[in-house]
Amino acid sequence: MSKWVWKGLRTGKKSSHYPDAPETAAGVSPGMPLTETGALPLEFCPFPVGEIEGSPDESKTDIRDCVHCFRCVRSSSDRVKWQEGYEWASEKDADAKGHSRQLGASFSHSLNIRMIDAGACGACISEVKQIAKPCYSIHRLGFFITPTPRHADVLLVVGPVTDNMVFPLKKAYEAMPTPKVVVAAGTCALTGGLFGPGFACGAGVSDFIPVDVEVPGCPPPPLAIIHALLVAVGRKPPFSGQKPSISERKAL
């Protein structure tokens, strides 16, 4: 078996340096259409989805609804700015909660995470898988994936919460010890995305359990998920909706 040891050693370090330094490799994030305020006003999304004949226009207007269809940038519309970056996580109801977080400082470098698949398409799950793999390796941050919610501090929920997953989701949430934090990752988990709300899906995780941190994206790239976890423990500021600073932009 020593050949595997050598193989591992020869490969060397592959992990990203984020959050100590911004990740500059190409292809770590698909980027997002953003305006200066972070919101995507109605007139900026020329291709709202979810419109069903006979029902009022459910035009998607928020950055939380962006499903990366690329129709805005690849069509004739030149009003949309496409921005790189991946620090998209924000605190849900930040105003109401102020800056206090449920998890204290003792969790900031020791965090156990349980993922729940509440009906995700597989892309989100694939991205969450990557955070524990060598290229991102959350273990270097003191974050770990745990197989059971009973050992978890963070519940990382992906998917719009399908009807059949409501019961398992609530049960997993109740099984967690306090203090606990819920991170909703991906457009589906935030708003129901393309699938919800409807007869088989909810309109996101917050309809069923309280959500603390949200990260948009379809799917959110691994670094955005890591940013969400860092926001959950207060090691990174949440997405402010501001343009990246000049130095950050250079790095990007």
Partner: peptide, 18 residues
């Protein structure tokens, strides 16, 4: 079918590009 999202039903009545 824990993850049944009703894809085929959701598609009905929507535009092709959606």
């Amino acid at each position: 079918f824990y993850k049944y999202r009703g894809l085929e039903k959701l598609a009905e009545g929507r535009r092709v590009e959606d």
